[in-house]
């Protein structure tokens, strides 16, 4: 990318926080409204893609290194399957949210809402965001280390 694109850089620097807030909103309201982990993760990945397109791939790699990306990719799957296995441990079926006894929350519907919106969807969002950024960086010229 060229060095003199000041307008693009300033606008993108202003836009990225709002895009990320919107992505988090979509993730956390996935159970009760339109949206969910996948869509929110894609929106979060779009903010990272915008950053790489404006500031270059080395600057983007400094914000989200390959090691962090790899850890995030696995952490999301771990959260998802961990909540599923937690339900089995407490005597339910796989991903049977109501079976998990949370401290201070005793209503089954509330428990289910909390675990879907705050647990499973967050895991899906983290994994989708990291995988989308990885696919994008594989396509990006100079994004991979092997060329």
């Amino acid at each position: 990318m060229k060095e003199e694109d000041v307008i693009i850089r300033t606008v993108i620097r202003l836009m990225i926080p709002f895009i990320q807030i919107f992505g988090l909103y979509v993730i956390f309201h996935g159970g009760s409204g339109p949206g969910g982990g996948f869509q929110g993760g894609v929106i979060l990945a779009a903010s990272m893609i915008l950053y790489v397109m404006a500031f270059g791939v080395t600057e983007g790699r400094r914000k989200l290194t390959e090691k962090t990306n790899m850890i995030m990719r696995s952490t999301g799957v771990l959260i998802f399957s961990g909540i599923g296995l937690l339900a089995i441990i407490f005597g339910g079926k796989y991903l049977d949210y109501g079976a998990v006894p949370l401290p201070f929350v005793h209503d089954v519907v509330k428990v289910r809402e909390l675990l879907i919106d705050g647990g499973v969807e967050v895991g899906i969002g983290i994994t989708v965001m990291a995988v989308m950024v990885t696919i994008f960086l594989e396509f990006y010229p100079g994004g991979t280390s092997d060329d």
């Binding site: 339109p34 996948f38 869509q39 894609v42 779009a46 989308m132």
Partner: peptide, 12 residues
């Protein structure tokens, strides 16, 4: 579905 179409189809 519209949400997915807009973010994945038109975006990524």
């Amino acid at each position: 579905v519209a949400f997915t179409e807009a973010s994945v189809g038109a975006g990524i």
